[in-house]
Amino acid sequence: MLSAKLYNITTIFYMLSTVAFFGYLAGRNRYIGLAGSALAWIGVAIQTVAAGLRWKESYAVGLGHIPLANLYESVVFFSWSIVLIFGIIDLKYKYRVIGAFVMPFALLGMTWAQLYLPTDISPLMPALQSNWLTYHVLTCFLGYAAFAVACGVSIMYLIKARSETTATGPAGGLLAMFPPTKALDELNYKAIMVGFPLLTLGIITGAAWANYAWGTYWSWDPKETWSLIVWFIYAAFLHARFTKGWVGRRAAWLSVIGFAATIFCYLGVNLFLSGLHSYGSLK
């Protein structure tokens, strides 16, 4: 199928983009940085076409649904969201170098999906045949993607903050390319400011859907509970800014832990725990 080829090409573009960003980090050549962003945008454009084709192809095999229905499709969409959110933040705030810490997440997702996950278009079980699926998955994953960007930025913050406290002279080399800690802190907050409302909306659309399909908006199913855990962590992050002793490094750690919890909510729950969201299982 053509869509499968396009997904492979997308993966290659994300790889080239990641390599370019690493090169930018090491060589500080403005044009290499620009190339990194351009490659990411081209990759996202190709992937958008691929998703559209896959959607069309699903009708051809008689299943007909938006490609957000199994683990492969969701991982691929997750990568797409990460690149999109990074692209927007790059356009808006012009700290291109964070690409070196964000694109690897997208590349990892695409590579894993292409190499190890079953790519078949699968039938939708009756409970998933609803427009709520689209709203719910869209908002959740865009939120997750913003958290991935925040996590990348936080890792940069932690590296930079550490070098500043232990610095023997001005931090040179790679670290000189990093935005100042204050800017990283601000970007982290900005990304979470985008992600938090999206996650909130994701949880609410999930609840609305559950209420519509089963008559219960909240049943403490492991997936629901984990999304709430993620929400608690980022709520703590938002309040950390107003509390002495929690700003800076601890807030950055909260962001990293928040993303780890996000990944567990997304994959860990399906792999290790059981519940309503079984469509994402590896079997």
């Binding site: 509970t225 709430l228 855990i229 608690f232 962590i233 709520a235 309040h239 950390a240 929690w246």
Partner: peptide, 15 residues
Amino acid sequence: ISLLITLAITSIIGT
């Protein structure tokens, strides 16, 4: 902050 973190951690038990 303590409550949010405590709620996050204890909620894990039931999952």
